[in-house]
């Protein structure tokens, strides 16, 4: 197991991502941040907390999206779902999807499918903490990236106790 981001490096990257998002959407008008369960919701929480610190006078809309029912490998393993929490009308809103690790792109494809069942947003952007870009299986690219890393196909990249670690098989 190798540490890719220490907790200090992680919090610096969260601040940087929140800063970029705040610069893109200074008024936060019609913007909804959505963390993908489970890792993306953890990173989403951190980004949203930082966003509230940067924009104390603005409302930060934040929800969590679970993709269990939309997975394309559902027949391989039936998983219990996580909690869905989207108490907003998303039609005509600008959505920032947040995930911890972007790998094949299949999770994001499923997240887009799930999201569109809630309405038709004006625009969807993607913010990820870690990009493993050489293994993409769908034409999906992030708009905001914390760190791009080089890994082996069989490696796993995970958030463990406030650090990002690489687990080699």
């Amino acid at each position: 197991m190798q540490v890719l981001l220490t907790s200090q490096e992680l919090s610096a990257i969260i601040k940087e991502l929140a800063g970029k998002l705040a610069a893109t959407y200074p008024e936060l008008k019609d913007v909804i941040f959505i963390g993908i369960q489970q890792g993306g919701a953890v990173i989403g929480n951190d980004i949203v907390e930082e966003m509230k610190r940067l924009k104390p006078d603005k409302t930060v809309n934040y929800g969590q999206l679970d993709i269990t029912f939309y997975r394309d490998d559902i027949r391989k393993e039936i998983l219990a779902p996580d909690k869905m929490n989207l108490p907003f009308a998303i039609a005509d809103k600008r959505i920032i999807l947040i995930d911890d690790v972007l790998f094949t792109g299949r999770t994001i494809k499923a997240a887009l499918d799930a999201l569109l069942d809630y309405g038709r947003p004006e625009k969807v952007e993607l913010c990820v903490l870690i990009d493993r870009k050489e293994y993409r299986q769908f034409p999906i690219q992030p708009d905001y990236v914390g760190k791009t890393v080089k890994t082996e196909r069989t490696d796993k990249v995970k958030l463990v106790e406030g650090e990002v670690v690489l687990i080699t098989k």
């Binding site: 679970d66 029912f69 779902p81 996580d82 869905m84 309405g119």
Partner: peptide
């Protein structure tokens, strides 16, 4: 417990504009 907690998430599905998921399409 697993059936009841999964049902809670399906109840949420039934409140959405599109009350349908693709899980059993095959």
């Amino acid at each position: 417990s697993l059936i009841l907690s999964t049902a809670e998430q399906f109840k949420e599905v039934l409140q959405r504009p599109v009350k349908k998921v693709p899980s059993l399409r095959d």
